[in-house]
Structures are given as structure tokens and as C-alpha cells.
Write a protein that binds this DNA or RNA. Structure first.
Lengths: 191, 191
DNA sequence: ACTCTTATTAACCAATGGTCAATAAGAGGT
DNA sequence: ACCTCTTATTGACCATTGGTTAATAAGAGT
């Protein structure tokens, strides 16, 4: 059976995700309504429910992209120039940069605890921690205790979640982030 | 003018806060409705709006108590037995304990970024950070750079917000918390 | 008795997430 | 051309929500 030809203005999941994304980066989950999104897509909100089972489902489809993006960023840090220390610090910086440049997403990826959303997101967020640990281990020839890396992760997470909402983007917290990552790496290497 | 005698079943702010508190510790802010609270108080939700200008206002009245409690806990740590290092670590432990034993509240006190709530809470949360800094400084004879203490605060905050939702209470994370605080103090004293 | 203030109700509003029967319209077979 | 199957979409509908407001009840002071 050949795939049915899309009508002129037929809705696709991608179109919906794209539009939803625009709204979720601008406003909190609870402030974004399915009707708003539908309006801008030129359809009724009922149509969205044909493609996504509910609001949380649509939201997760949006956030999933960000997990992929973050994992990519982290894994690419290894191939940049510099010694292990510099590279490791860069991993931290990039993580923080991601967190502060995509605050709403970060919020949902790592912070928000909401039954409505959580089951879907749990795995992806653990996966990201794994990715982070693996990356750092590689830089230090697997010599560090995983626990020590976990401490770094947790602390870095604290930095992001503290500055989120207080600054608009990473740039505004760059200096603080640089000092903080220096502090973290120092602690790591003094171990 | 003598204060008007309360009717038999007249509503008081305290009654409302008490009932609201019961709901907010059990469910997320967005899941708690003014009508639920009113129902259990035996009044209509309109009556609550006479005492509190809106839901966020009521919520903050609930959370305010927790800021006071936390500040009290932190300030009392100084008077316990032990050397400065032990005392300092105890401050961290107590902070984490508070965070993990009152997760929903902690969430709103330090994490949630919501225009609806934020303006009210901003000051109190900064105040808590001040309290923390002052306490630690006192223990180390004002010898530390404030920035270093801030790093500890941020990291500790990261620990709490990572474990929140993953454990039920402080007890379940006690061992991890003890190792983590050791790590933090070590980093602080090696400065 | 009258007035003032305080507290509460009940009806109302606009908005929300979600459901569903009805329907439009392409695809395939006859 | 006609019928049928499937897919996509509408629009009416529902319960629930935060919030507003006119009406009202009732104690206090004069």
C-alpha cells in the first residue's frame, strides 16, 4: 500500500513538535496550552490529540531532541584540542552552557519532578549522567572513582539550577561558571 | 475598638494555611486546587480569596514557615559540640536533611522558577544563602572567601535537587550525603 | 433601630486538558 | 463511476480550574 499523499495543509508530528517547541522555550509547561499551539498551526486542538496522546507526551517529544543534543555536545568535547584538564573543564563548561542556554528544557530534563512527565524522562536523564561519566573517565584514563565524578556532576547541576532564572543565558554567568569549573576540576585532581 | 469576636466556624488565615499546607506537601502546586482546600475547610473557595489575594499568595504563606525553620536550624548548628570542621559539616548535613525531608517545600523554596510565585520568594531564598554564608564564616573565623562558600552552597543544592524525587527522605540518602559533605569540606579546607 | 465593617456565599466568567461522534477526503478494489 | 476502508480533522461537549463580584449575613458601635 503506497503511503497516502499528504494534503496541502495536513499536520505532521514534526510540524506540531516544532511549533510546540517554540512555545515551551518561551513559557513554562503549565502556561502553554494545546489551543495556543493549535491556533498557530491553523488547526483545532483536537487535531493535536490525534498525533499525541496528551500534553505531556507532546512535551516529551520536544525535550527528547534536547537529550540527543546534549549527549552529542558532551561526546564531542573529547575531540577538541588541549590537555585532559582543559578538556575536562570544557565538558563542564559545555554542560553548564547547555543548561543556561536552554533553561526551560534543562529544568524538565533534570529538575522537575512531576508524575505527569517523569516516567518518560527518567531513563533519558540517567543516560545523560552515564554519558557524562564515561566522557570524563576517558579523559582521565579510567583512573577516577565514579563517585568522584558523580560529585562533580551533582555540583555542576547545582550551579545550573541556581543560576537558572537568575540569568538570561550562559553568557551572563560565564565568569562565575569559569571560576566554578576551575574549583571543581581542582577538587577532582586533588583527590 | 475591640476586635470582633470570631464566629463559631469563622475562617482564619491560620486555618487556611494549615489546610493548604497539608495539600501542598502531598501534591504539586499545580495539582492542588483552591476548591479542594475550601471543601475540606467547609467553605467555598471564594472565602479563601477574601483572606489571600490568589493561589500563589496562599502558597507563599505556607512556604514562609519553612524558610524560618531552615534559618533556625542553620543558626543553631554553631552551638553544637565539635571542632569547626565537624560543625561545618553538620551545617551541610542539616541543610541536606532539611531539603530531602521537605522535598516539595525545598523545591519551591530554591528550585522552582515560576513568574507566578517568584517575586515573593526571591528575597527569602537569598536570605537563606546569607544565613548559610554567615554561619560558615563564623566557624572559620571569617577567613574564607565568600565565593568559596558559595560554591559549597551551590554544590550542596545540587545534591539535594538530584536526590529529590529519587529518595523518599534524608535517611535513604544519608550515606551518600555523608560522603558528599566530606568531599565538600575537604575541597573547602584545601583551598 | 440604624449604620459600618467584616466575612461568606453563590453565581458567574474565561480558559484549560481531554473526549468523541460526525465528517471530509484520499487510496484501492470492483 | 461507485463503494469501502483508513486517516485526519473538526467542533461540540465535559469537568475542572483560578479568579471576580454582587448580594447578604451578622457582629459592633452609636
Amino acid at each position: 500500500m503506497t503511503a497516502r499523499k499528504k494534503l496541502e495543509n495536513e499536520l505532521t508530528k514534526e510540524m506540531i513538535i516544532h511549533e510546540a517547541h517554540r512555545h515551551f522555550i518561551a513559557h513554562d509547561y503549565s502556561k502553554v496550552s494545546m489551543r495556543e499551539i493549535a491556533k498557530e498551526l491553523g488547526c483545532t486542538h483536537g487535531a493535536i490529540y490525534y498525533h499525541f496522546k496528551n500534553k505531556a507526551d507532546l512535551f516529551y517529544a520536544v525535550v527528547e531532541h534536547y537529550f540527543n543534543e546534549l549527549n552529542l555536545i558532551l561526546s564531542e568535547c573529547v575531540f577538541q584540542e588541549g590537555n585532559p584538564t582543559e578538556k575536562a573543564r570544557n565538558v563542564l563548561i559545555e554542560f553548564i552552557k547547555f543548561g543556561l542556554d536552554h533553561q526551560s528544557q534543562y529544568n524538565y530534563m533534570f529538575m522537575k519532578q512531576d508524575e505527569e512527565i517523569d516516567p518518560l524522562r527518567q531513563n533519558a536523564s540517567i543516560e545523560s549522567l552515564h554519558q557524562f561519566t564515561k566522557t570524563i573517565q576517558k579523559l582521565y584514563n579510567e583512573q577516577l572513582p565514579n563517585e568522584e565524578i558523580f560529585y562533580i556532576f551533582v555540583s555542576m547541576h547545582g550551579f545550573v539550577s541556581h543560576y537558572a532564572g537568575r540569568v538570561e543565558n550562559f553568557e551572563e554567568a560565564r565568569e562565575a561558571a569559569e571560576r566554578f569549573t576551575q574549583y571543581l576540576i581542582r577538587a577532582l585532581e586533588k583527590y
